[in-house]
Amino acid sequence: MEAVLEAFLSHYNYGMAIILMMIGLYALIAKQNLVKKLIGLNIFQTAIFLFYISFADVEGGIAPIYLPEGMEAIYVNPLPHVLILTAIVVGVSVTAVGLSLIVRIYEEYGVIDEAGLLKMVKRR
């Protein structure tokens, strides 16, 4: 029991991240509404970010902020943080492009769900 709890405790946030990813992926693929798809995309991306932050975290570590001379501490790994900063910017750009496309599609076809769109595209 102890061992199981141990294993669970050391890995549960990975599991959670994966659940979140799956939720996002499901929305991306299965949802008909285009805005819902993008919400799914956001969840999917943040879940990946969560995964990065999780593995960067070190037991008993502290935030990688410069400490005065003489103080020793275990920093958490700062590199994934930097990576994720970049990835967040990329993610918001993708969302912005996607949303502007949805607005355009709505202006052209008057619908924002996939089934309706398919009908409209075929009709033209």
Partner: peptide, 8 residues
């Protein structure tokens, strides 16, 4: 922030 990733 609880995971020490304050900047992110």
């Amino acid at each position: 922030s609880e995971m020490n990733a304050v900047d992110v």
